[in-house]
Design a protein around this nucleic acid. Structure first.
Lengths: 362, 362
DNA sequence: CTGAAAGCGCTTACAG
DNA sequence: CTGAAAGCGCTTACAG
């Protein structure tokens, strides 16, 4: 802190070099652990860096060596209103993003997050903005069309989450097929439910399409009756799920014995809508989710659902992106395993109040 | 996509200029809306940009104009294990970060997030890394000592959250005093509880200190008996809260009539620990939280707590930082208002099942 | 309105 | 081991 050159302007490597009595090349080398600087040189540089509290400018580094050590993550926010009551709707996304971030740290990368409003038409503008600041980007579901992705992928490595791989981009998803099949078999086989409905998510979501397809196939295979189609079209949100139920009940439609929801959020809305009409879950209708977000176990009844390895998906997305950035190849479609979590909402017995496996927060 | 120069190397502004038949200065101007380019010039540039899918490099821009349009956010992760079952413990932080991000978007800034493991000794190294990539940084609670902050603040604008302002940094917090006072008055006054305990958070957290201080003062003022001290020392986590209760019960200590927890997480742990011993909340013991994280209303009993304007705190932190980055001054300690949320865990009557204000997710 | 040129703060061959 | 110098891809006075 002695004779710091900390005038108006920024402190640069020149200031450090001057204070240490060496060249900027030497400062750069000791800071980056390149070469084998003489102990005394290293010592003097480090002292100067300490005295000045010098922090090298990452933009200059990036420009010089072509690596920003930043990955961007872009996703959609629930609503257009800025601070509306979104509650848990972003739990899934937050979980993924945390996985990305933790994995990024290990490679000393940082994560630039950017959300886009659900009806924001400037999505591609924002994505481009993030792309300019990153070495590669991770796109959550429904951010860009396939051709949009293909175009962007020519400029920068891209990994999509719960999407579809393209020639140029990699996708990381979960095993929707096995999960849905296990769920339907449990509902129809173990509980003997003969009448099932699938309350869908966004029609254009690859995850939703896969779940819907397997639901139909598996239910049909075991001879269960199914309800699907426009009347059962939700949008991954709690209110979307609630609305489907409200409309159904309003027009006197018959409820199935079990409602398989496209995700946990939807199931949450369904349970509330049913409760409002005095219907009991699972006694009158069984309800299941998909994702296993943290609140799922706290609901009453606790939610039977398919657990996706949420943080691991984020971590995997980063690792795959990292290897693309590093010029390595690799798989173009990665499918992570899921697990059926049996709780109360499907009709299984409630867990005992002391459930060691859930730990204190459970 | 005609004669793109997209060889190995990066596509640069030179490629665009060549394709458009203008100088790089012109390209830069139309891209940034500077000056008044001739319509034809603008047109040709835009066409070239489109054909090439050109995305300008943000590092080069930043180096040139001294602005990265990035703010960093640094916080602590719950545990040292990478993917342990952290559940809702990060809800509060995620909420803040979302507020930061949404506010940043309005100024076309992006947010670089970086978490530090709870026992990670390299916190300052990570912070420095983020600092080099940002125009300013937002530090969550307990990231750096006061002197550490003061030092770093000489290099880069800093805003702390739930901390204390320093000469060089700004702090954004909530009105702990009013919130805690209202809570204690409700417990002692409205419910008539004469025996209260404060289960504290991290001893070195400014928020915790303020809450503890006001708890004592307010409870004493209304003539209630209080329990505090080492036996009631938690750490903001559910397991910390559960442990305090378990120890107390194990050594046969007497429970107070109401337990005021330092935050919602702690309350969650307390409620579980009590349930494990067959004690009922609020009949045997009332329990309250602080924060009002989204799950608070889903607990059974639903949690009486103090609502902090979580996203707004994040948004405010960004705005304050932004004005510092822009060279403007401003307050150095900003205190946001809180609100007492009366639910079941304090002994208030359960809300009717249909609660319009909570909406579908509620 | 437009172009040539300098400069932003680093890294990294290239000599010595 | 160390230093002088070029170069990374932009932006922005400065002339014209």
């Amino acid at each position: 802190m002695t004779e710091a050159k900390r005038s108006k302007g920024t402190l640069t490597i020149y200031d450090v070099a001057r204070l240490a009595g060496v060249s900027i090349a030497s400062v750069s080398r000791v800071l980056n652990g390149q070469g084998t600087p003489r102990p005394e040189t290293r010592e003097r540089v480090m002292r100067a860096v300490g005295e000045l509290s010098f922090v090298p400018d990452a933009s200059a580094r990036a420009l010089s060596n072509g690596l920003k050590e930043v990955v961007g993550v872009v996703f959609r926010r629930g609503g257009e209103a800025t601070f509306e009551d979104e509650d848990e709707s972003l739990l899934f996304i937050d979980g993924i993003n945390r996985g990305v971030e933790v994995a990024a740290q290990r490679r000393s990368y940082d994560v630039l997050v950017s959300s886009v409003g659900v009806h924001d038409s400037h999505a591609s503008t924002r994505i481009a903005g993030v792309a300019g600041k990153s070495d590669g980007i991770i796109l959550h579901d429904r951010m860009l069309s396939a051709v949009g992705i293909a175009r962007l992928a020519e400029m920068i490595p891209i990994v999509t989450l719960a999407g579809s791989p393209t020639r140029a981009s990699v996708n990381v998803g979960c095993d929707n097929d096995s999960g849905m099949r296990a769920l339907v078999n449990h509902l129809a086989g173990d509980h003997g439910y003969r009448h099932l409905a699938y309350l869908s998510g966004h029609a254009d979501s690859p995850d939703n399409r896969a779940r819907a397809r397997v639901f139909e196939a598996a239910a049909t295979a075991v001879g269960a009756q199914i309800q699907t189609g426009p009347d059962w079209q939700g949008n991954y949100s709690a209110s979307g799920g609630a609305q489907v139920i409200a409309s159904l009940l309003a027009r006197g439609g018959a409820l199935p014995r079990a409602i398989v929801c496209a995700n946990d959020q939807t199931a949450l809305g369904v349970i509330h809508a049913l409760a409002r009409q005095g219907l009991r879950v699972p006694d009158d209708v069984a309800v299941t989710g998909f994702d296993d977000v943290p609140v799922a176990r706290h609901l009453h009844p606790s939610l039977t659902t398919i657990r996706q390895p949420i943080e691991q998906m984020g971590a995997t997305a980063f690792e795959v992106l990292y290897s693309r950035i590093s010029g390595q190849g690799g798989e173009s479609n990665i499918v992570l395993p899921v697990r059926l979590m049996l709780r109360e909402s499907c009709g299984c017995a409630p867990a005992s109040p002391v459930t060691p496996s859930l730990g204190v927060g459970g």
